[in-house]
Amino acid sequence: MTLLPLPFLFLFLTSLPFSVISQLDERSTLLTLKRGLGDPPSLRLWNTTSTPCDWSEITCVSGNVTGISLKNKIITATVPTNICDFPNLETLDLSSNRFSGDFPTVLYNCTKLRHLDLSQNYFNCTLPADINRLSPQLELLNLGANAFSGDIPTELTSLSKLKSIFLDSNNLSGELPEEIISWKSLVTLSLSKNKLSGKIPRALGLLPRLVDLDLSENKLSGEIPPEIGNLKFKTLNFSSNMLTGEVPDKLDNLAYETSFLNNTNLCADKRVVKLQDCRKVLRRSKRLPGTIFVVIVVIGALILAVTLVLTFVVVWNYIRKPRTSRADIFNKDCLKSFMYNICIKYNGR
């Protein structure tokens, strides 16, 4: 076997395109990642004889890994520490697996990440207070259908480039932070099926690009801020909360016919929205003092009637009771004295 001279070998290696060398490096990193994920059978095509950019789970641009999609791969391991060892990674999809435990803060190292999807897993505990350490370039954050609990961290609002946020189907509680005003780029916000309480922040109505808003199936209360009516929604869902008052005029149309269902104390001026009529509610509220007055009158009449009946019974019994005169009392005393004297004489006393 003839060996190539070292100078020729060096020249050959240095003449390789940088993209080829990069792919070889990233293939090695991806295979390490595969082992960290427990070598799932779903990734059996990841091997040393193929090119990463040809793998269906990998997206490349100019030979560099820019996207990793491991959706529905039945992965049960924890998120590996080298998940961010790809300098150009912009998209990471780990959805529909069996990841569990705390929020994977190792993702803070993905500094160019734009899309992060961790939905439909078993992550739990509270969202970390330093969640703003995620990539400042982040545009999509999907944490839906997990078991996260506690408040929505105010620090999340520091990620000002977010366009889509999905935190639905968790156990999140507390109030929505007013600081959401910083999400000026926000287009979609889904917070349904949680335990959020308090009022809907008026700041939501000041987000100029917001067109999809879902706050359904929470415990939100109070009135809908009129600022919400200034937005042009494609989808809007406030149903199954504890909202009160009147739906803003600009939302009172057929486009939002089912947006406010199951809010017992919410009303609308027009019949196109499937809510009770505010005018009828107002009339009922005006009649309320009259109703109370009638109840008071009825109760008073019953008390008076019972008093009269008892008085009649007492008087009647008094009238029917036999009377004893002073003469009768005197005669009885005399009779008792007479009989006493006879007894004394009879007994020889």
Rank of each mutant, 00 (worst) to 15 (best):
G222S: 08
S240P: 02
K219P: 04
T264E: 12
G222T: 06
M242I: 05
P208F: 01
L206H: 13
L206W: 09
C267N: 04
M242A: 13
L206E: 14
S216T: 06
L243T: 07
L196S: 07
K195V: 02
R202A: 15
S160L: 04
S182M: 11
K195P: 00
L275R: 01
T244Y: 01
S190Y: 03
F238D: 01
E257I: 11
K232G: 05
K161C: 00
S259H: 10
K193T: 04
L207Y: 04
L282N: 12
S182F: 14
L159T: 07
K193M: 05
I224S: 02
N170K: 04
K270Y: 04
F238T: 05
P201H: 12
S240K: 14
L261I: 13
D277V: 06
K193L: 04
P226W: 00
E217N: 15
L167Y: 03
L266K: 04
L254H: 12
E223R: 09
L162K: 06
R271I: 11
K161D: 10
E246M: 03
L251R: 06
D249L: 00
R279H: 11
S173F: 14
L213A: 07
K232L: 10
L172T: 13
S240N: 15
R279N: 14
L176G: 01
L186D: 04
L243D: 11
D214S: 02
S190R: 00
K232H: 09
K274L: 10
N218Q: 09
P248S: 05
K193Q: 06
L251F: 11
